[in-house]
Design a protein around this nucleic acid. Structure first.
Lengths: 148, 148
DNA sequence: CCCAATTTAATTTTGTGCAATTTAATTGCG
DNA sequence: CGCAATTAAATTGCACAAAATTAAATTGGG
């Protein structure tokens, strides 16, 4: 690519991904409003619905987020009584995060979202799977580049 | 996909694109630090390097951002003397945003970034182009779904 | 065993994103 | 023409992200 072309907005990988990310966020928003969760809160809940309970650290490793982001998010989820926090007796530095009954129950409603979302996106099941696969591959590739 | 699989974190389109977006941001950060620009400020500058001058509205249309985001960004770019603002005499509602000499000059340094970035990402020129193409297509697809 | 280094979270600061509101300017219908 | 509806920006409030700092608990080498 010519240098003059390369510096144009619409030739930036960062811009296409950034726009796409916000557009997909927008696609989710009406569904998340039904759950009264933000995007980030939803991601945290996804981890907890799989693990039932985990430390702040494990949550951060799963979501690639640090305590600077997660502490306030968990504070809000706890205020909403979807989660609760407890220091790990075996290591008082660690905070164990668990689902309350209400938090567990929310999974039933949330389980409907992925299907409804694919339908709304207008993608076929195959397109969805391939896109997910491509994204995940590229993510690993870039994470590699970032840690070298 | 089974419903139980569908609700797992790593099967969410939102999570893969969200992680990818932040990872790409991370890939850019060292280069943007050289320019002393944030990611969003860089995107604004990309538009201005192409157009030389435009209104807040046009900037928002290009970047899919509204004045709530752009006003403070432009305030900072203007404080740094990379841009300046002027009301459009033909329509006093509009704000014309233009590059200062310093803003124009920064393009020379910035022009090196796309090439260095592709190299750092470890993608071939072909992979880069195909990825860009796929993302741009999907973006249009989702934007369609969001406006129906 | 002891203290320095490490680990885990929380907090602070800065800069977005986005929805909702406000203000000023312009447009267009009756 | 006159005023209601529309448009363009700025502002406000809330919730992230990421870097840097702080604080408390744990670990490990001498």
């Amino acid at each position: 690519m010519e240098k003059d072309e390369a510096i144009k907005l619409n030739n930036q990988l960062c811009f296409s991904i950034y726009s796409l990310s916000r557009e997909i966020n927008k696609l989710y928003r009406p569904f998340l409003e039904e759950l009264n969760l933000t995007y980030t809160q939803y991601l945290v809940m996804l981890v907890l619905w799989e693990k039932e309970s985990c430390t702040m650290k494990e949550l951060g490793d799963s979501l690639f987020l640090d305590s600077g982001t997660l502490s306030p998010v968990l504070k809000r989820l706890t205020e909403r009584a979807l989660t609760y926090r407890k220091r790990d007796p075996d290591d008082e530095r660690r905070v164990l995060i668990s689902l309350t009954e209400e938090g567990k129950q929310l999974k039933e409603t949330a389980a409907e979202i992925p299907g409804r979302l694919i339908k709304k996106s207008g993608l076929t099941e195959e397109e969805f799977s391939r896109t997910l696969f491509d994204f995940t591959n590229l993510l690993q590739h870039i994470q590699q580049a970032n840690t070298e």
